[in-house]
Design a protein around this nucleic acid. Structure first.
Lengths: 227, 227
DNA sequence: CCAAAAGTGTTTATAATACACCCATGG
DNA sequence: CCATGGGTGTATTATAAACACTTTTGG
């Protein structure tokens, strides 16, 4: 490489992952207890520095793999955070990502070893630096995505009831949705297949399980939740 | 500052601006002829490196001010481009921004001095590096914004006809819009004020000029163009 | 029996779309 | 007088939202 840019400054470049999971009717975030300075002992997003041979996407995947053991995680860039004073230990430009994780699949022991913990979105602890702002922007992005296509395959188990799917959407949009209208809307997308099996633990009558039809284009081009 | 991060690598951090303008019924991009290596002589977005005391937002504003002489430019971050090989001259992480410029206001002599030129979005030249991808992502963001709130005050002159506004929207969404329906939709937002003056140069009958009502919340919370 | 979710159907309100039609006027 | 955009009105269709009602079953 040449030296054309040598008069300009270089900075650390990090990624921070806003990791969404869904469990017990609650949208959750995977946070960890920082084991190093600065801000040692405080709660923070999962992050790390971008290596010389990798893009930020690759770095984010590497970090998620380390923590959760998962390879095929849905990942989307949120935005860059670049305030010169955002990290008191040095000039760090951080690229926020959001990830969707199926909690039932990830390696929970690896998560625990890393001092990580799932926190309900409704009661987050104080976060270091500008991580709270990252969470807010990531939630906006998630709402945007979920409003245009059916998420769920990235967050729910293989089979799930429409109640579970609706509760997920209510958690994402943080408001109630009409059960009847939601059911009709979702089924009209033709991306779910009803299974014969029923879930009898969450209602007396029992609700059919559904699964995503393989290969059904999830991007339905119809608005699922009006924004 | 400490030395906690010293084992990690540092990279150049740049911003590249996708500068939209509107003129003669055409959505245009301000590009410039690179005067330095690498890729000297090719067309490129306006860009520059982020300084030690500034955020990337500030850097983008500084660059836009240098080129156009304008201070109050609408600016939004698009996304980070981080491929390790995206710039052959060194590891440069670039943050793409999109800007909306009123061509009638900017300092055209300063633009010319910088070797810059307005190109119609319909016939762009080949761009260096990943700048074409930046333009595509920026247009997506612009469509998203324009679909949810009335842009125009950032791109059109102080007074304009509804024909001009519709042509702007058709340029942004790259499809035709029904004149009657567009008019009703726009006027129902109650953010435009009809002036007594008429424009008689673009139609025989003459069309009323409109202007944006000061302080009218532009974010109308109604969808202007369905996506 | 009753509460609670499952599942279906109906009604109303609102928004998107298509398009007809008259107006004004420069060439 | 006529082509062109200005401007208004209306019919049709699609979608969102509200909500009534019936079914099922464990406690």
């Amino acid at each position: 490489m040449g030296d054309k840019y040598n008069k300009f400054s270089k900075y650390f470049v990090a990624v921070d992952c806003v990791i969404f999971g869904y469990e017990d009717g609650d949208l959750k975030l995977l946070l960890y207890h920082r084991g190093f300075e600065p801000a040692k002992g405080m709660w923070s997003l999962m992050g790390g520095f971008v290596g010389e041979e990798e893009s930020s996407d690759t770095a984010a995947r590497r970090i998620l793999k380390n923590i959760t053991g998962l390879d095929d995680i849905y990942l989307e860039q949120v935005q860059a955070f670049t305030d010169p004073k955002r990290d008191m230990e040095g000039r760090v430009v951080s690229l926020a990502y959001f990830a969707l994780i199926r909690i039932d699949r990830h390696k929970s022991d690896s998560v625990r070893e890393n001092g990580a913990h799932w926190w309900s979105l409704k009661s987050l602890p104080n976060l270091v630096f500008d991580h709270k702002e990252m969470v807010e922007k990531a939630l906006e992005k998630l709402q945007n995505k979920a409003g245009l296509e059916l998420v769920g395959s990235e967050l729910l188990p293989d089979k799930f009831t429409l109640l579970q799917l609706r509760l997920l959407y209510e958690a994402i949009f943080q408001r109630d949705l009409d059960p009847g209208n939601f059911r009709k809307k979702i089924l009209s997308l033709n991306v779910l297949q009803r299974l014969c099996e029923k879930n009898t633990t969450e209602s007396r009558r029992g609700a059919h399980y559904f699964k995503f039809i393989d290969g059904a284009t999830e991007r339905s081009f119809e608005r699922i939740v009006k924004i």
